[in-house]
């Protein structure tokens, strides 16, 4: 871990040791890997086709000057898009699966998401305003669901993707009930 300059000042008086968040307890469903892979494929497949088309068109346009200099290298465009696509479809879903975790303690919803960039989100149940469980068409095919948790602030709102349907609906109901019971007036 990186070195810490002194104690974090002004945290209410007592100095704390260097703090790290531990990983949340639960993984999402393994089927989420397939879900993300198909999603990326649906984006990068057409993008690759488009890139091929653009490269062919730019190569035959016969421009001069600066556009011509760019067009001369247009052949690299489908290569770059294709490489990004392979990375996104082959690597990203597994990576995301390893990162995505969630946990609901007595009064806090704790999630970790992302792959390249990561996000840890802590939302106290008492500040939750609405909880939605929803399914897209792809999620329906795979038996997955997404739980959306909204607070008074957009920054404090989160999405739990890739949960099995049963878990998601139970979690949403449970959270909604507890949020109602615990609701305090911070808004």
């Amino acid at each position: 871990m990186t070195a810490v300059r002194g104690a974090p000042a002004g945290d209410g008086g007592d100095a704390r040791p260097a703090a790290r968040l531990r990983a949340p307890a639960h993984r999402v469903s393994r089927r989420a890997i397939a879900h993300w892979a198909i999603e990326y494929l649906l984006v990068f497949g057409p993008a690759f086709g488009l890139a091929l088309g653009v490269a062919a068109w730019a190569g035959s346009a016969g421009w001069t000057g600066a556009p011509g200099a760019v067009a001369a290298h247009a052949g690299w465009l489908p290569v770059a898009v294709g490489a990004a696509g392979v990375l996104a479809v082959g690597v990203a879903p597994v990576w995301r699966y390893r990162v995505h975790r969630w946990e609901v303690s007595a009064d806090v919803v704790y999630t970790r998401t992302g792959w390249f960039d990561r996000e840890w989100l802590l939302v106290p149940v008492g500040r939750i305003q609405t909880v939605d469980a929803g399914q897209g068409w792809l999620e329906r095919l795979l038996g997955l669901a997404t739980v959306e948790i909204n607070t008074a602030s957009h920054t404090g709102s989160s999405e739990l993707t890739g949960l099995p349907v049963g878990v998601a609906t139970r979690l949403a109901e449970d959270l909604a009930r507890r949020a109602h019971d615990l609701r305090d007036d911070a808004t």
Binding site: V4, P8, D11, A19, R20, E103, L122
Partner: peptide, 29 residues
Amino acid sequence: AAPDAVAFAAGITPAWVEPFLEPVPRAAG
């Protein structure tokens, strides 16, 4: 600093953050 960010949040709302902190050995921390 990454540990500061977590410590800052933990200092303001200890009840929400502390249950999720990694137990840090004092000497190493």
